[in-house]
Simulated scan of single mutants.
Amino acid sequence: MDWGHAGRQLGFLVVFALLGYAFRALMRRLAERDRWRVALIVGRGAETAAAAGDRLAE
């Protein structure tokens, strides 16, 4: 078993959980009319990150 790889995956899961919690807290604080703007920005960032990951995998 590759422990370095497993450690990176565990680190990813921890960071993902923390960012998910922070994003949820942010969305609760925002006014209803501002939430869609933030969702669009985050969605675009996720799309860009996925495309960059696809290019790195090639």
Score class of each variant (00 low, 15 high):
26 L>Y: 10
57 A>N: 07
16 F>H: 03
24 R>N: 13
34 D>I: 00
58 E>A: 13
53 G>T: 04
17 A>F: 06
20 G>E: 05
21 Y>I: 12
12 F>D: 09
13 L>T: 09
52 A>C: 00
34 D>Q: 14
12 F>G: 01
29 R>M: 08
58 E>L: 13
23 F>H: 07
51 A>M: 11
49 A>S: 06
12 F>T: 10
56 L>N: 01
2 D>Q: 06
52 A>K: 06
3 W>S: 04
29 R>D: 05
15 V>C: 07
41 I>N: 04
24 R>G: 08
32 E>C: 01
15 V>E: 11
19 L>N: 10
3 W>A: 08
11 G>H: 12
9 Q>A: 08
13 L>D: 09
7 G>V: 09
27 M>W: 01
25 A>Y: 05
53 G>R: 02
17 A>E: 05
50 A>Y: 10
19 L>W: 13
57 A>Q: 04
20 G>L: 10
56 L>T: 02
24 R>H: 15
26 L>A: 14
55 R>K: 14
54 D>R: 13
38 V>F: 07
37 R>Q: 10
49 A>F: 02
20 G>P: 04
27 M>L: 15
50 A>D: 04
29 R>E: 10
52 A>V: 10
9 Q>V: 03
4 G>R: 14
21 Y>M: 09
11 G>T: 09
8 R>T: 10
6 A>Y: 08
58 E>H: 07
45 G>Y: 01
42 V>G: 05
